[in-house]
Structure formats: structure tokens, C-alpha cells
Amino acid sequence: MTSSAANVTRLLLDWRNGDQHALDALMPLVYDELRTIAKRYMSRERSGHTLQTGALINEAYLRLVDKQDVVWQNRTHFFAIAARIMRNLLVDHARAKQMAKRGGGALQVSLNEALVGGDPEVTVDLLALDQALSRLSEVDERKCRIIELRFFGGLSAEETAEALGLSEITIKREWLKARAWLFRELSGAEAVHGEEE
């Protein structure tokens, strides 16, 4: 066990016990570890094999969390943080690309412009998704978590279930409902926006 593992385990516990500062302290630790692993992979495997985001998070978890002292809530919180980091990273990236396109300056984000993803059919406006997700989290934190873990964190349904301590069936159902909600928000169809906030 490394000292940072002890530290991360302790902070996870604190966070679970309601200490919000613990989260502030955790973020950079987890970020650093994710970055270290990612860098190592990228220097080792210059071409061909790519590092999957989900695999990266799993490895970081194994390295950073003290298994002696593990409770599933720790696992949940750890994965939540990692997925949140990935979400921020991707959204920032999308925002930067968009700003570059517009010559910068404009902070207002136009939906549907920043596009990420190779397959045109599954092209998603990450910035709009990010915003919709933030709205969703206000009424349904769990669904937001699931989307973060699966979509941004690249975890499978099974891994997500394990990370959250929920059954796979629940995850799948929640996922479908959250996805429907987000799809409606992003496609702008028939949404009953009148009662938003």
C-alpha cells in the first residue's frame, strides 16, 4: 500500500462521511494517478493499441485504494470522481475546440457545434449534454452518476453496477430512462421546459 493509497482511502471515507473538503483533496490525487497511468501507456504504446478510458479508471482504482479497508461505498465514490474528471476533460476539450473555431472570446456556448466522436450517427453535442446532465443531477443524482460512469468513464453496465453497488438490471433501466430524458433535452422535442427550475 502506498502512502497515497492510504490517503485516498482515508479521504474517500471522509467524503462519504460528509466532508466536502475531502473531495477537494481527492480530485487532484485521482487526477494525478490517472494522468500518470495514461502517460505511461502512451509512452509505451506509441501506436496500435489504445488505452481504454474504462480500463484506465479500473487500474487507477487498484493502485490508489487500499483494499484492506475497502467498502463498496469507497469504490462508488472513487469511480464517481474518476468519471467526473473524464467528463470535465472531454467537455473542456469540446469547449476549447469550439472556442478555437469561433476565434475565441465568445463564452456563450452554442449547442450542436462542439462535436466529438468518430461515428456521425452517434455524434453528440458534449457541451449540451454536459449542461443537460447538470440539470438532471439536480433532480436525480443517481441517473447522472450512471451516465457519467458509462458514457464519460467508459465503464460497462456490469462495471457500473459494481461501482455503484446496484444490480445490473437497475442500472440498465436507469440508463434507459436517463438516456430518454437527455435525448429529449438535446433534441429539443416536445420538452416541457415551462416547469424547469
Binding site: 490517472l34 494522468r35 495514461a38 502517460k39 501507456y41 502512451m42 489504445t50 488505452l51 481504454q52 478510458t53 474504462g54 484506465l56 473524464m86 476533460l89 472531454l90 476539450h93 466529438v116 466522436g117 468518430g118 461515428d119 450517427e121 452517434v122 453528440v124 458534449l126 449534454l129 451516465i147 458509462r150 458514457f151 464519460f152 468513464g153 467508459g154 434507459l176 430512462k177 438516456r179 430518454a180 430524458w181 437527455l182 435525448f183 429529449r184 433534441s187 422535442a189 416536445e190
Partner: peptide
């Protein structure tokens, strides 16, 4: 929402190029 569910197809089924976040990190 049911309607959205029916029309959503493969919406966000695929992670944004599953390795992209990792690469950005690296």
C-alpha cells in the same frame, strides 16, 4: 419521455471514442 426513448436509437450508447479521455489525460 417514452417518445424520446423510442426515438433515441443509439444515442450516447457509445462513449466518446472510448479512449479519448484517456488520451487527453496522457
Amino acid at each position: 419521455l417514452l417518445d424520446a426513448h423510442d426515438r433515441s436509437g443509439t444515442f450516447i450508447e457509445q462513449s466518446p471514442s472510448s479512449s479519448m479521455a484517456a488520451e487527453l489525460l496522457g
